Computed example of a mutant assay.
Amino acid sequence: RIGAENVAAAQIALNISSMTYVIPMSISFGITIRVGHALGAKDKIGAIERSKIGILVAGLMSLISVTIFLLFPDWIIRLYTTDPAVSATAATLLVFTAMYQFSDALQTSSNGALRGYKDTKVPMLLAIASYWGLALPLGIVLGLTDHIVPAMGEKGFWIGILTGLTVAAIL
């Protein structure tokens, strides 16, 4: 319903986002291991320090992605397409992608720390609520309906993603 060019642009932005997501995800795995080791050694203060430092590193690393997305969108998009219509829409979506890089890095690395503490149930429930209960319905309402604002198409879905990731990070 939102058109092939818009779907293609969304796919480009999602692919770029997925590639940069591996950095905070990898850091989160390291946080899980380091926190788990500290807790296994009965070093609660060390576990807290490792959690904080890991989350900080992931957040700072995400700012590199944000900077690149905002400064060089045309160069990045050209790796995928030269179609002007797809490129223009992808550039807009890349701004949304840049906006959620930081919150996504924070929620991913925080989940890594919580896994080190063997806390997985509550973060899973919070993620389900954030993504399935908030992000997707908001994206559908903003993207495909006129209930709140005139249908925004793919931008509405990306606002939903941005909102869900930010809420998950805060929770």
Score class of each variant (00 low, 15 high):
residue 116 G to S: 07
residue 30 G to S: 05
residue 170 I to R: 00
residue 140 I to W: 15
residue 120 T to Y: 00
residue 107 Q to W: 05
residue 9 A to C: 11
residue 132 W to Y: 15
residue 70 L to C: 02
residue 45 I to G: 01
residue 113 A to S: 14
residue 105 A to Y: 01
residue 123 P to V: 14
residue 97 T to P: 01
residue 35 V to I: 10
residue 43 D to R: 13
residue 92 T to S: 11
residue 67 T to G: 01
residue 98 A to W: 06
residue 125 L to Y: 15
residue 69 F to Y: 11
residue 103 S to W: 02
residue 152 M to H: 07
residue 58 A to Q: 03
residue 116 G to A: 03
residue 36 G to C: 06
residue 153 G to S: 09
residue 5 E to V: 06
residue 130 S to D: 02
residue 124 M to Q: 06
residue 167 V to R: 00
residue 82 T to Y: 07
residue 37 H to T: 10
residue 44 K to I: 12
residue 24 P to G: 08
residue 39 L to H: 06
residue 103 S to A: 13
residue 3 G to E: 01
residue 114 L to M: 13
residue 148 I to M: 08
residue 39 L to C: 06
residue 167 V to F: 01
residue 135 A to E: 13
residue 141 V to R: 06
residue 141 V to K: 06
residue 119 D to L: 02
residue 5 E to P: 09
residue 86 V to C: 15
residue 31 I to F: 05
residue 103 S to Y: 05
residue 154 E to N: 08
residue 23 I to D: 10
residue 23 I to H: 04
residue 97 T to W: 00
residue 142 L to M: 08
residue 146 D to G: 05
residue 72 F to Y: 08
residue 159 I to D: 00
residue 59 G to P: 04
residue 9 A to H: 13
residue 149 V to I: 13
residue 84 P to I: 13
residue 89 T to Q: 15
residue 52 K to M: 05
residue 124 M to W: 03
residue 80 Y to M: 04
residue 152 M to V: 03
residue 41 A to V: 08
residue 71 L to M: 14
residue 8 A to S: 15
residue 14 L to R: 09
residue 104 D to R: 12
residue 115 R to S: 06
residue 89 T to P: 01
residue 33 I to T: 15
